[in-house]
Simulated assay, not measured.
Amino acid sequence: MSAADAPTMADEFQTFLALMGRLNYTWTNTESLLIHMIAGLADVTKEVATVIFLTLNTSRARIDLVERLAKLDAQKPDLREEVLSLTRDMHKTLKLKNKYNHCIYSFDNEGRNASTILMRISDQKHKIEYGKSSPINAREITLVRETIQKTQTLNKSLWEFFKQRKFPV
């Protein structure tokens, strides 16, 4: 491949943006499966679980609820461990999704060399840190692709879990 045929940084950023759309779609589709998890763990109808799910306004709150329901004494230990394993996988996806959805993007003076600037404060012992920057490069694109694949696999695992545990679907 000649230098003229090599992907440009603009192409790389466009690929990244398209992958972010896929990551968000894949995450949202998988997160909605928490409705079935809530229904099964709380022993409520899917309709009630949907209202609970929609009342909680963050992914973190929804996952926290599912984990807390799983940790109740009434739950069997094997069910608890299986649920917590699934939610651990969800946390991994959520972390990367949030990284890119809660940042700003910066470029050099020519509109190239895309990077992210995290919009989060990190409290240290005697100071705060913010504005951590990291480049959007082939390594990050690969990480997003891998996360999409892992989320799709998680989605299938959740459906199998619901079938095995006879959770409302």
Rank of each mutant, 00 (worst) to 15 (best):
1 M>F: 08
2 S>Q: 12
3 A>R: 14
4 A>D: 14
5 D>W: 14
5 D>P: 13
8 T>D: 02
8 T>V: 08
8 T>E: 06
9 M>V: 11
9 M>D: 13
9 M>H: 14
9 M>K: 15
11 D>Q: 09
12 E>F: 08
13 F>P: 12
14 Q>I: 10
14 Q>D: 12
15 T>H: 13
16 F>C: 10
18 A>Y: 12
18 A>E: 13
18 A>G: 13
19 L>W: 08
20 M>P: 06
20 M>F: 14
21 G>R: 05
22 R>T: 11
23 L>D: 08
24 N>R: 11
26 T>I: 05
28 T>K: 08
28 T>Y: 07
28 T>M: 12
30 T>Y: 07
32 S>E: 13
33 L>Y: 03
34 L>A: 09
35 I>Q: 09
37 M>R: 14
40 G>K: 06
40 G>R: 09
40 G>M: 08
41 L>T: 08
43 D>N: 09
47 E>K: 15
48 V>F: 05
50 T>K: 11
52 I>S: 14
53 F>D: 14
56 L>Q: 13
56 L>K: 10
57 N>R: 15
57 N>G: 07
58 T>M: 09
60 R>V: 13
61 A>Q: 15
62 R>P: 13
63 I>Y: 12
64 D>E: 15
64 D>Q: 15
64 D>V: 13
66 V>K: 11
69 L>M: 10
69 L>A: 09
73 D>N: 14
74 A>H: 10
74 A>N: 13
75 Q>H: 14
76 K>I: 10
77 P>G: 09
80 R>H: 08
80 R>N: 11
82 E>C: 00
82 E>I: 01
82 E>D: 06
82 E>Y: 01
84 L>K: 06
84 L>V: 10
85 S>E: 06
85 S>N: 11
86 L>Y: 03
87 T>C: 11
88 R>C: 06
91 H>T: 12
92 K>F: 09
95 K>Y: 14
98 N>H: 02
98 N>D: 04
98 N>M: 04
99 K>W: 01
101 N>P: 01
102 H>T: 03
104 I>Q: 05
104 I>P: 05
105 Y>D: 01
108 D>Q: 03
108 D>G: 04
110 E>K: 07
111 G>W: 00
111 G>D: 00
111 G>A: 06
111 G>T: 02
114 A>N: 00
115 S>P: 07
115 S>A: 11
115 S>L: 09
117 I>H: 01
117 I>P: 03
117 I>W: 01
118 L>G: 01
119 M>Y: 03
120 R>G: 00
120 R>W: 00
120 R>I: 00
121 I>L: 08
126 H>K: 10
126 H>A: 09
126 H>T: 07
127 K>M: 07
127 K>F: 10
130 Y>P: 00
131 G>M: 01
132 K>C: 01
133 S>T: 06
134 S>A: 01
134 S>G: 02
135 P>D: 04
138 A>H: 08
139 R>S: 07
140 E>N: 06
141 I>G: 04
141 I>H: 03
141 I>W: 04
144 V>Q: 01
145 R>P: 00
145 R>F: 01
146 E>L: 04
147 T>P: 04
148 I>L: 03
149 Q>E: 08
150 K>Y: 03
150 K>I: 03
150 K>Q: 04
152 Q>V: 02
153 T>R: 04
157 S>I: 03
159 W>Q: 04
159 W>T: 05
162 F>A: 05
162 F>K: 03
164 Q>E: 11
167 F>Y: 15
168 P>A: 15
169 V>T: 14
169 V>F: 11
169 V>Q: 13
